[in-house]
């Protein structure tokens, strides 16, 4: 459905994308996960015909994004990372505007957007600028779906949205997928990766790994420990300089560590105690997908 082949893009001296290649199958939710500035938005803008790649080719729904951009625009739905609807128009007006642009009507496509629109309907005469973050996202999704696109591009749709609305949003995506929609979604939140069929980790313009969420976790082949004490910041510093520890990173209110063969929790406990850490706890944990990403990024930084 989406086929990206060796796409590169540079802005001056900055390489935003480096020979990125991947495929998205029909009816799949494909997640692009990566930190800010990784190149996610650039990739989206190329795939939605807004930007020309410097090198490589990309096809969406069988059409080349450069040569066939006009026809393609009617077949894709795009929700930019920034809220891009008219804030001074109401929900109903925004929706009617985008429906008419695509030569259709709200009524003709009501089935597509019904589950989302029903939540918005009580506020349909409210101006878009006055909506909450979650409502804005739903309206933007409605507008992106109003012309029954084949492929949906969602650039960080849940950034700045509260956890409940995020969950609702992903439930909607799951429902769209069931109807056969192909969805490419990017997010900086790694916990959202588990809701995708496959995910690609992108960093510094390069795709590091593509797999199912379970596949990525199973590749994490070393023991993982969590450490806590009363002084998080000093704890990380001390753990990073400890000779038996490979990596240490903050994970919520604990520090996750990967370790060398010489590691013994009792020794670490004693060493940390000697450095005046209070309430020390060290326990083994099973890695989550987030640990895998952080691990991958760490190895990427120090090759």
């Amino acid at each position: 459905m989406i086929r990206v082949n060796q796409v590169s893009k540079r802005y001056g001296a900055i390489e935003a994308l480096r020979q990125v290649s991947f495929e998205v199958n029909p009816g799949e939710i494909f997640g692009l996960i990566g930190p800010d500035g990784a190149g996610k938005t650039t990739l989206f803008r190329i795939l939605t015909t807004l930007l020309l790649p410097d090198e490589g080719t990309a096809r969406v729904n069988g059409r080349d994004v450069v040569a066939n951009y006009k026809a393609l625009r009617a077949e894709i739905g795009y929700m930019p990372g920034r809220f891009s609807l008219y804030q001074d128009l109401t929900i109903a007006e925004n929706l009617a505007f985008f429906a008419t642009i695509f030569g259709t009507t709200i009524e003709a496509n009501y089935e597509n957007i019904r589950p989302i629109y029903e939540q918005l309907a009580p506020f349909k005469d409210r101006r878009a600028g006055k909506l909450s973050g979650g409502m804005k996202q739903k309206l933007a999704l409605c507008c992106a779906l109003i012309h029954s696109p084949e492929v949906l591009f969602l650039d960080e749709p849940t950034t700045g949205v509260d956890p409940v609305s995020r969950k609702e949003f992903w439930d909607i995506l799951a429902m769209l997928k069931q109807k056969g929609m192909t969805i490419l979604v990017s997010t900086p939140y790694m916990d959202e990766a588990t809701r995708c069929n496959r995910v690609g980790l992108i960093q510094n313009g390069e795709l590091l790994q593509i797999d199912t969420p379970a596949g990525i976790v199973s590749r994490f082949d070393q023991p993982l420990w969590a450490v806590t004490s009363d002084e998080m910041y000093r704890l990380i510093q001390d753990l990073r300089t400890h000779p038996t520890i490979k990596t240490a990173y903050a994970f919520g209110d604990t520090v996750h560590i990967t370790v060398k063969h010489s590691f013994y929790p009792e020794d670490l406990f004693a060493d940390l105690g000697a450095k005046n850490h209070q309430n020390i706890e060290i326990f083994p944990i099973t890695p989550t997908i987030e640990d895998c990403f952080i691990g991958l990024m760490e190895t990427q930084k120090t090759p």
Binding site: R73, P80, S84, I101, C143
Partner: peptide
């Protein structure tokens, strides 16, 4: 940023 949304329309 509304130009982004307009640009992907026909």
């Amino acid at each position: 940023g509304t130009i982004e949304q307009i640009n992907v329309t026909p």
